[in-house]
Design a protein around this nucleic acid. Structure first.
Lengths: 120, 120
DNA sequence: TCGTTGCTTCGTCTACTAACGAAGTATTGC
DNA sequence: GCAATACTTCGTTAGTAGACGAAGCAACGA
């Protein structure tokens, strides 16, 4: 029950759902997600931590960068089912498609340039 | 997105998830759910309304009684998938089994007797 | 039709949550 | 080492959500 509630609570915020869907096309650095969502770094960091704790997302550290991706290895059945359901339900959602297009442009940018958000 | 968030928000509270799982063995009158959960009638009513608006549950009025059951007819794919996921994830959950046992005893009681909760 | 009953809605209070900026932490480069 | 960088955590504030009792509403019974 606790796992399920962690998942449903993680999925009950639009920003987190959008962030989750953004990871469909591959892993993203936190600064890329910040650029996509247009929220403060601390806010996005907290959102991603919640998705992480719910088991929906995995984190990989490479130097100073933190990359997030959809959970794949050793994922409990609850989280796996939830991911499947969300991705299937939102496949044709307008916001998700719009984010996907924005992301293809964000991926072209330099990571260090995106990290300017921490200093402005 | 709005539908999905209505569903995840409805599922992000333990009382509502328990109420939903309680409907697995068949429809229940509101007073039976109140007896099971031990919360105020107004609280349970609000919870069930949220589940209703999320499309997870259906309501049937029979005289003064309101019966709730899991959504079956014309259910959008999102809600259907969510129901499947939750039921599957919580099939072996202790609280759910305990509630199921309590319910078999509650079903034996008289509905009018259970409605005493509105007058105490 | 008028009171009773079963439930819903309203008003209120408390507790949690999303947002931010500031301060803290871990890693790199010099 | 030590500054800079890429986050994370902390502290605060404003909005939301869950709990309750009181009041309102719809259906039945006499």
């Amino acid at each position: 029950m606790r796992n399920l509630l962690a998942i449903t609570k993680a999925l009950s915020d639009e920003s987190r759902v959008r962030a989750l869907m953004a990871l469909q096309d591959g892993e993203l650095c936190l600064c890329q997600i910040i650029d996509l969502m247009g929220l403060a770094p601390s806010t996005i960091s907290k959102h991603m931590t919640l998705l992480l704790q719910a088991g929906l997302v995995e984190r990989r550290k490479e130097g100073r960068w933190h990359f997030y991706r959809l959970a794949r290895n050793g994922v409990p059945a609850e989280a796996k089912g939830a991911l499947k359901w969300v991705v299937h339900s939102l496949r044709d959602e307008a916001v998700v498609q719009s984010d996907s297009e924005k992301l293809s442009r964000i991926r072209e940018k330099d990571l260090e340039a995106l990290c300017a958000c921490y200093r402005s």
